[in-house]
Design a binder for these strands. Structure first.
Length: 425
RNA sequence: GUGGGCGUAGCUCAGUUAGGUAGAGCUCCGGAUUGUGGCUCCGGUGGUCGUGGGUUCAAGUCCCAUCGCUCACCCCA
């Protein structure tokens, strides 16, 4: 009696073995480069109190209003599957005293959850690598973080990326700009579409993002955020730009670039691919100097980024830059069923003696022909054949599956020497 | 949340127009080669046609619902 098959939950994907090399490449590259810049790994819970996100991200954001996986715990607490990583990282750094008289740089990686309609590059469970640097107020950390992100993306071998940069200024700057924007759009209310009217008072900056071509003229004539920055924000941004120029990092200033989370202010940046359809942002971040205080700490400047791993993996797969999965050095083939018992022990002795050795056995029986076929498919460089003749003489036959070499029969004691020649394969 | 496209063998797909109880290629298994992979040839395994209802003498095919995939809007990494 076969039970009804169960399918996955919508938007919750599986990473299959074929995608393994690309995922490992992306994750290993992030880890390596982040650690080179002094970022220390931190592991954070997937569930936090709902209030953490509603306070940090903003009550009126789409994420908090309609995308969170929120549930009531058995003791009545409202808990939420994290929709992003920064809030939890700040909570942990603050709660554990990491911010006390220190300027920690932290990174983390893991699944995030948002109840959105899935599409290319957007899933309900998705994975991010995040990096957060606390306690440094100046543009130097902004520049270094951006250069670091560029280095990672270059190391992944992804091309056709552009870096967009902007400053959101202070909260007061944005307040004045917001008022000016509303005034502008209200003066041209007849040119707005339904979405724009709906957002005009809740999130007027978002109106600038509209993809509706009919809105292009009214958006083009809208006030520019850059004109509303105070002297300090402007000086910070100018220095950042000079640092990037000097380091040879190209970028485009985009005064329309904004963020969907309320805690951002000052520098914001975004790496965008042209090859991902509508969800082209692969890595984005910015300053959030007010967040630590919002969560109950002392005012602490901070900046960070988050990278979407599914999107990067997709680009890495298209670019073909991930190293292939490693293939076995050798496959040990058993010539007769009565040899299985001590051949398995022989394999263990070889693995003991040669810790680097990737040795597989085509287990489960089958003819020697079948075992050799499986050995070949495994990608093994050589097949080690142990049949009745070899067992009687305490030898093994080494058959080269990739190189044009004759097979040889050698004493077991000679095997480490023979196999060592394969180590660089 | 809104709209479009799609679910047939492990994979890629035909079959849906005009309802008549399922096909191909690849994969996999076996043989040709009584101890030797890859190429070739021969043979074979494998599907309650996403799921649940309904119409019908008869449903992969028509209708309804539902789940999943996918693309865009929206939103975002």
């Amino acid at each position: 009696m076969v039970s009804k098959a169960i399918q996955n939950v919508r938007g919750f994907g599986d990473v299959l073995p074929a995608e393994g090399p690309a995922w490992q490449f992306v994750e290993a590259t992030f880890r390596r480069e982040l650690e080179r810049y002094g970022y220390a790994g931190i592991r954070l819970p997937i569930v936090e109190k709902t209030e953490l996100f509603s306070r940090a991200i903003g009550e009126v954001t789409d994420i908090v209003e309609k995308e969170m996986y929120t549930f009531t715990d058995r003791n009545g607490d409202s808990l939420t599957l994290r929709p992003e990583g920064t809030a939890g990282c700040v909570r942990a750094a603050l709660q554990r005293g990491l911010l006390h008289n220190a300027q920690p740089r932290l990174w983390y990686s893991g699944p995030m959850f948002r109840h959105e309609r899935p599409q290319k590059g957007r899933y309900r469970q998705f994975h991010q690598v995040g990096a957060e640097a606390f306690g440094v107020p100046g543009p130097d950390i902004d520049a270094e973080l951006i250069l670091l992100s560029g280095r990672i993306l270059r190391a992944l071998g992804i091309s056709d990326l552009r870096l967009e940069l902007n400053s959101l200024g202070t909260s007061a700057d944005r307040g004045r700009y917001r008022a000016a924007l509303i005034e502008h759009f209200e003066a041209h209310a007849d040119a707005l579409d339904d979405d724009a009217r709906r957002r005009l008072h809740s999130n007027p900056l978002r109106v600038l993002d509209s993809k509706n071509p009919a809105m292009a003229p009214v958006i083009a004539t809208a006030p520019d955020l850059t004109d509303y920055l105070d002297d300090e924000s402007r000086a910070h941004f100018d220095t950042l730009c000079r640092m990037l120029d000097q380091a040879g990092q190209p970028y485009q200033v985009n005064s329309r670039l904004v963020r969907g989370l309320d805690y951002y202010g000052g520098t914001v940046f975004e790496w965008i691919s042209a090859d991902l359809g509508a969800q082209g942002t692969v890595l984005a971040g910015g300053r959030y100097d007010v967040l630590v205080e919002m969560i109950g700490g002392r005012p602490t400047p901070a900046i960070g980024f988050a990278a979407g791993l599914e999107r990067l993996v997709s680009l890495v797969e298209a670019a073909g830059t991930a190293p292939p999965a490693p293939t076995p050095h050798a496959a040990l083939v058993v010539g007769a069923p009565d040899l299985q018992v001590d051949t398995l022990a022989l394999a263990e002795r070889l693995r003991d003696e040669l810790p680097w050795l990737h040795l597989e056995m085509p287990l489960g029986g089958g003819s020697m022909k079948s075992q050799l076929r499986r050995a070949d498919r495994s990608g093994a460089a050589v097949a080690l054949i142990r049949g009745a003749e070899e067992a009687a003489a305490d030898t093994l036959t080494v058959k080269y599956l990739r190189d044009d070499l004759d097979q040889i029969t050698v004493a077991i004691g000679q095997l480490p020497e023979i196999l060592s020649a394969l180590q660089t394969h």
